[in-house]
Design a binder for these strands. Sequence first.
RNA 1: GGCUCCAUGGUCAAGAGGUUUAAGACGUCGCCCUCUCAAGGCGGAAUCACGAGUUCGAUUCUCGUUGGGGCUACCA
Length: 511
Amino acid sequence: MDHKELAELLFPEITKTPEDYERSYPKRDLAPGAAVTRLAPSPTGFIHLGNLYGAMADERIAHSSGGFCYLRIEDTDEKREVEGAIPVLIDTLAYFGINFDEGAIGEDGSDERGIYGPYRQSRRRDIYKACVKYLVAQGKAYPCFMSEEEIAAVRSEQEAAKENPGIYGKYARYRDADMDEIKKHLDAGETPVIRFRSEGDPSRYFKIEDGIRGKISMPENVQDTVILKQVGLPTYHFAHVVDDHFMRTTHVVRGEEWLSSLPIHVQLFDAMGWEYPIFCHNTVLMKVDDETGQKRKLSKRKDPELGLSYYKQLGYFPEAVREYLMTILNSDYEEWRAANPASDYSEFAFAASKMSNSGTMFDLNKLNDISKDVLARKTAAEIFDFCLGWAEEYKPDKAADMKANKELYIKIFDIDRSGDKPRKDLIYAEQIMRFISYFFDAEFVRESDMPKECAEDLKSILEKYRGLYSASDDNSEWFGKIKALAAELGYAEKPGDYKRNPGMFKGHVGH
RNA sequence: GGCUCCAUGGUCAAGAGGUUUAAGACGUCGCCCUCUCAAGGCGGAAUCACGAGUUCGAUUCUCGUUGGGGCUACCA
């Protein structure tokens, strides 16, 4: 079998070689210790807290080492692609402070920044094919014409025989097909997938040093993994290897769900004759399932409330979310923050090796607590500006009122926030605005037929704060507006719900 | 099922064979402060999954068990 002839037969249009690309994408000129990381999402349009958690690890590992972080779009699965997902992704990440030095960061996804592109996998077909062609020419990959039915049949045969499922060894029908057989299929108009010809033996183990987990040992891969799909696009495994090599990634930070395919990846790096990047397998963010009570990975389907847009809608300060994520990413961050309350988080010495290697449970209480601290460090004016921005997007009617009564709002935001015992009860914009509503509504509710002791409580609250807003000559007109608004919001119908010392936010802070 | 990763209180976790009567934070409970409490102060309860082994000594090392996570696609 002439492998070179086969490679030409399969990829006549590909003239470039991996060596050509090697020259096109020169090694980066990096300071010692500087890391190059990448965020490589697929454009499915939904970003949740777990994605941000991973993204922050990438961003911090790169930037705290003086390196670079780029954005690569993994759009090799056309079926899953969602229109317009990329700009949303970029905007959302930017909102939470994740910025990229290069990558697919154009407004409409068409612009790219950096010399290692294209940064969208769908535009790198020729690069992948050149590498696949190289492997075929070396006899390390081959075309496979097995149909879905054939594969399914093999699988059930394997299950019956209690063997490991998959296409490998004797089950790989086209592994050793001769040129005539291949030509016959090709002439019949069939398009093959390209499989890697694995020489691995699962009874042999290889060792590798993971950037987070330390030494790990895994069995070699036996599977003849598909590297090029019928549509001419690579699978994740191959795209990862080619891209992270040519884009000169030094640290591949990714979720631990990739750990089990690491044997395939190292095998592919070896076959191409390339050095491995440092693999950093991160843990996933988990939650307790509401129904089963079991721990599980955050899911985009089951946990819409964990989508990043949820936090944006509630008006969490992005800085608060970031601080929370930092504390679970590097556990000494909290201590560092306590010692350096005024420092920017970028001054913290972030390290992959300090990352936890067991799954972390998402904790809303902790997020809220951290948010209180973050807001306690803000001035009332800063809080006002943020809340106004939030209101303009989510509560336009409120925004108008805020603008008209800016000074009053700022005074209220500032209640008891200075001095020896500053209050820390502001958490997120929606809650803050609810606080304001309660505060204003008190005057309104007091006049209604609520239980007497509640009225007394409210009265005393108002007495205390009256000075804050009676500074202006006449509040009556303004109070009238508040009353109308309160009525509109339905408060007038439920004064009876008001309980003595209700704990204004308890029960509102999430679930 | 196979392979694999993980395992300190309810949660995040420090700890790296003796210096630990196992830090700290969140939550929780109690008390105090007080013109409200949602803030603040003080204090309490609560953890090394289990079983062997190595060792003078194990939360720390090894093996097993159990539990949980992940993978097992022409998805990423």
